[in-house]
């Protein structure tokens, strides 16, 4: 592992989650799971973040917000969809206001299963994302523009 995966910073956004996965993402920061020992820090600023962790499915109102957050993150970047709602819409798939999983709006690199996803599997998913991040760095991959936004990823 090189410098990038030694201290990845995470941006967490709650799309239309029930909170179950959100509090499990936050639980990863608590002393029992303590992801900070890996140098992982939860930041509130998209311009500081390497990994975008999204919980919950996309709905009509947060579509643009998610697209915006993704576009603001510097390259290389990876997206982790946490929980079944973020992966496919989950139990709310049929609701009129839910569009579907995160991959309807932005490209997703890692899907973490579970309702709610357990902290262990969330950590697992983020570790998996780190090797993808490393790969992207090596290949100099630029993110594909967020679909429909017309804007490329931040350079």
């Amino acid at each position: 592992m090189t410098w990038l995966s030694k201290s990845p910073w995470i941006l967490h956004y709650d799309a239309s989650s029930c909170n179950g996965c959100d509090i499990e993402v936050l639980a990863c920061l608590s002393p029992l799971y303590d992801v900070e020992r890996f140098g992982i820090i939860n930041t509130g600023n998209p311009k500081h973040a390497d990994v975008l962790v999204i919980t919950g499915g996309i709905n009509e109102q947060n579509r643009e917000v998610v697209r915006n957050l993704y576009a603001q993150m510097p390259d290389p970047k990876v997206v982790v969809a946490v929980g079944i709602c973020a992966s496919s819409g989950g139990v709310f798939r049929e609701c009129y206001n839910v569009v579907g999983g995160i991959d309807c709006v932005i490209p997703v690199d890692v899907y973490v299963p579970g309702c709610a996803a357990r902290p262990e599997s969330i950590i697992d998913g983020i570790v998996k994302a780190l090797s993808i991040l490393e790969e992207k760095k090596k290949n100099g991959t630029q993110s594909s523009p967020a679909p429909g936004s017309g804007a490329g990823g931040a350079q």
């Binding site: 009509e60 206001n97 839910v98 999983g101």
Partner: peptide
């Protein structure tokens, strides 16, 4: 702010079509 106006007056559901 909802996908359609007054959604509860005539509830509709997303079908089986994939996103």
């Amino acid at each position: 702010r909802t996908a359609k106006k007054n959604p509860f007056a005539n509830p509709t559901f997303r079908g089986e079509e994939t996103c």
